[in-house]
Design a protein around this nucleic acid. Structure first.
Length: 503
RNA sequence: GGCCCCAUCGUCCAGCGGUUAGGACGUAGCCCUUUCAAGGCUAAGACUGGAGUUCGAUUCUCCAUGGGGCUACCA
């Protein structure tokens, strides 16, 4: 338990330009947890100042991700709040006004350098092995010259006048003091020629206006933090606390991208991961409670979370461990909850990973409930419900001939096992697991086979696969008639390889 | 190239001057067992390198190396 801290106001400020990936969503999660812990507010703000890259689907995915993970927000789009609007494109006037004000106060200036000129400048610098950097030429443009350019329809931006000397530093909550030399910075754009602000200006203003106390964001923002500090200075305001969290990398240690497979939280949902497992797992990427506890409830995470236990170094996303954790969560679930989680996956269309379309929807809940104890502890993913249970629902099953013989069994032996099994299956009663087991064990002894040898072909015949839940529970659930049919069918299959037809 | 950040088993985390360097996933073996899981036990497996500081460095400092990020009128 960390010492009580005053309520934080934190925000998740995604840009609707792409589906939020795990790393991005983790910062949202940290924010949310901190807000819960301190009884503060979690704010969501859409940073859509780049109109050319706006993607409505991305915006949809942002809210869907938050909703799925249960990251409820106190203020934000669609929800409102005392500082609405929470969409930057709707706050444009503030940015323009402030940029103008900064020009007036001498902290910023108009620049009419065209993109082509900028490009040429960089080319020259590159050729001369100089670092590409804006050379501050706009500082020397007179108001008349700017006005002239404006009349000609040239694009005008506003740039912040960065001091040539000195340095700026800040204390990052996870990394400590970080210092930058001002001579490394050029005069950067704060208002674009389309009258929209850059990220730098917009987020500083909004965070200020919204009373944000802690800016929690990815590592990649460290380099531009001096710019943000400079804007605060120019405005004469105090910066918030900065918390730069390490990146999450893919298996190959590079920034997470599509080629790493699933990168968005939503994809994990669709793959059959439980939200609590994903929540738990993501929290542990870059944070730990300090002891060896790994499986924690949301409440426990909220209780134990603390900024100063956030890691310095980037983490690699390891799906295998997530799968393990998901299995832990599944095993900890009661059967009713498991059924609720499983049903949507099983009732999807066959092509989407559901049970065969021939199985009537809605599927028989009473029957499914009887089946769950057999597969419960075997599941790692919700999507596996279909493959482990389809043999219980399907009318028949089509085992591969080569799967039928068990270890150290030849064809005749397999055939003998199946024949005896079939005979017994027709007559045995009651068709209950304990009774079946007793009878079949006796059978094994009679025909001088090891139980495992006898059971193996039966299992494949009944379920169509070599791996399945305990055999006699399975047979009992499937029912005597279908078992008989399937054993007969298996006998036909094994018979067909024994006497291969010419050609 | 410049600037900034980072560096403990393959991976995720412990460690915050003195430890047989701990746990988890994964891997291997064994046990359990009608298969597969689950469970239990065991094993292999790490302090990037070099200088300092110190009685003593995984831990503090510096350098090197490696990785990452930024270097846009993108965020």
């Amino acid at each position: 338990m960390t010492s009580p801290i005053s309520p934080v106001r934190v925000r998740y400020a995604p840009s609707p330009t792409g589906i939020p990936h795990i790393g991005n969503i983790r910062t949202a999660l940290f924010c949310w947890v901190l807000a819960q812990q301190t009884n503060g507010q979690f704010i969501v703000r859409i940073e859509d100042t780049d109109r050319s890259r706006y993607d409505a689907d991305a915006e949809k995915a942002i809210f869907e991700s938050l909703e799925w993970l249960g990251l409820t927000f106190d203020e934000g789009p669609r929800k409102g709040g005392p500082h609405a609007p929470y969409v930057q494109s709707e706050r444009q006037q503030t940015y323009v006004d402030t940029a103008l004000q900064l020009v007036k106060s001498g902290h910023a200036y108009f620049d009419d350098t065209t993109p082509e000129q900028l490009h040429a400048l960089r080319e020259r610098q590159r050729a001369a092995k100089q670092p590409p950097r804006y050379d501050g030429r706009g500082r020397h443009r007179s108001p008349e010259e700017i006005e002239e350019s404006r009349k000609e329809g040239l694009p005008i931006t506003i740039r912040l006048r960065v001091p040539d000397h000195g340095s700026v530093s800040f204390v990052d909550a996870v990394r400590g003091k970080i210092t930058f030399e001002l001579k490394e910075l050029d005069d950067f754009v704060i208002l674009k020629s389309d009258q929209m602000p850059t990220y730098h200006l917009a987020h500083v203003l909004d965070d200020r206006a919204m009373g944000v106390t802690h800016v929690i964001r990815g590592d990649e923002w460290i380099s531009s933090t001096p710019r943000h500090l400079l804007i605060h200075q120019a405005l004469g305001i105090e910066p918030p606390a900065y918390v730069h969290v390490p990146l999450i990398l893919g298996k190959d240690k590079t920034k997470l991208s599509k080629r790493h497979g699933a990168t968005s939280a939503l994809e994990y949902r669709d793959q059959g991961f439980l939200v609590d497992a994903v929540f738990n797992f993501i929290c542990l990427l870059g944070w730990s409670p300090g002891d060896d506890t790994e499986v924690m409830t949301r409440e426990e995470i909220i209780r134990r979370f603390s900024i100063d236990r956030i890691n310095d170094s980037p983490a690699i996303f390891d799906v295998e461990k997530l799968e393990w954790m998901n299995g832990v969560y599944i095993r900890n679930m009661d059967e009713d909850s498991l059924m609720t989680e499983l049903l949507p996956f099983m009732e999807r269309e066959e092509a989407e990973g559901g049970l065969p379309d021939s199985v009537a929807r809605p599927i028989d809940r009473i029957y499914l409930k009887r089946l769950l104890p057999l597969v419960h502890e075997r599941l790692k993913l919700l999507t596996e419900g279909t493959e482990t249970l389809d043999c219980f629902f399907a009318d028949n099953v089509k085992p591969e001939a080569e799967d039928l013989p068990g270890r150290n069994m030849d064809i005749p032996m397999t055939e003998q096992a199946l024949e005896s099994a079939l005979k017994l299956c027709k007559s045995v009663s009651p068709f209950e697991p304990e009774h079946l087991e007793a009878e079949y064990r006796a059978l094994a002894e009679n025909i001088e086979m090891k139980p495992g040898q006898l059971f193996s072909p039966i299992r494949v015949a009944i379920t169509g696969k070599a791996f399945a839940p305990p055999l006699f529970d399975t047979m009992s659930a499937i029912g005597q008639d279908r078992c008989v049919e399937r054993l007969q069918n298996a006998l036909m299959i094994i018979g067909s390889i024994e006497t291969p037809r010419p050609d």
